[in-house]
Amino acid sequence: MSFVEVSGFAKSYGGNTVFEDINFVLARGEFVTLLGPSGCGKSTLLRCLAGLVSLDAGQFRVEGEDITYAVPQKRGIGMVFQSYALFPNMTVSQNIAFGLKMQKLAAKVVASKVAEAIELVELGGKERAYPAALSGGQRQRVALARSLVVEPRILLLDEPLSALDARIRRSLRQQILDIQRRLDLTTIFVTHDQEEALTLSDRIFVMDRGRIVQQGSAETVYTRPANEAVARFMGNYNLLGPQESRLLLGLDIDGHLAIRPEVIRLFAADDVTPGLIPATVMHSQLLGNVVRYQVEAKGVALQIDCLNRRAADLLSDGNRVMLHIAPEDLQEIAP
């Protein structure tokens, strides 16, 4: 029996469908990410799982128990919000202890559990601080501790890192993963950031226009996108239509060809190795450790990502180069 079973979830507001036909199962301790562009319905889906938004149709079972119509406080589901949602008039300790105090637990038990939670999120020394005195990352760790201290069966994370700067985001991301692994806690994480999804998840569910269009491991979703929408969202794929495929590669196909930007290799313009395609650099963008080139080859525009090894290797706009695209890197995908 699966730990979590979601079947036939559907939600609409008025005539607008937010999501429909959502089905998935999760194993205990699994870390799953709902990934998709803004407005695809992923946050609403998460709020439906938490019971904060009512469903139009569907069934939600956890450990075999049907909790489709249970109120949020009876579901045993913890949730962390993008806006932290801390209680501003309470200290860090009081924020974390609040749920336990409302359960009328003994003061000693509350104190011990709060101390454990504070240690877990590495906020020692901040027990008496108010949320206003904390940084964004610290506030989000308080929110995480507050939701973990009540020992939920499932943890929902609604874009918890979106409001943080890049450096804190990376460190908190790792901390979330460490805590999740240590507690073996089934976790559903919502994000629109591919990097977060790829680094954190056991499985990724890619959502597009209210449907899960692909689910699989990070590697599968990245290297084998199920359709054009996933390819566009996951990795700046070069998508070639039938005409472009014919022009560039001489291939006759009905659908689209997807080529990842990092698999196209660049060679010097005077390289005469057979199978190379002549191209011109139209534009280059330095992204730190990667350089992104827009090139034109046989009338087809392509994007190529190269490692930024040496400044002398950087190409300028108008430079002529040769391209190599290995046949095994071509993927035919559904529109």
Binding site: R47, A50, P72, G78, M79, L86, F98, G99, R146, S147
Partner: peptide, 12 residues
Amino acid sequence: TEEIDALRTIGI
């Protein structure tokens, strides 16, 4: 500020 939602998800 989603405090109400947070309360409900910690069982209150």
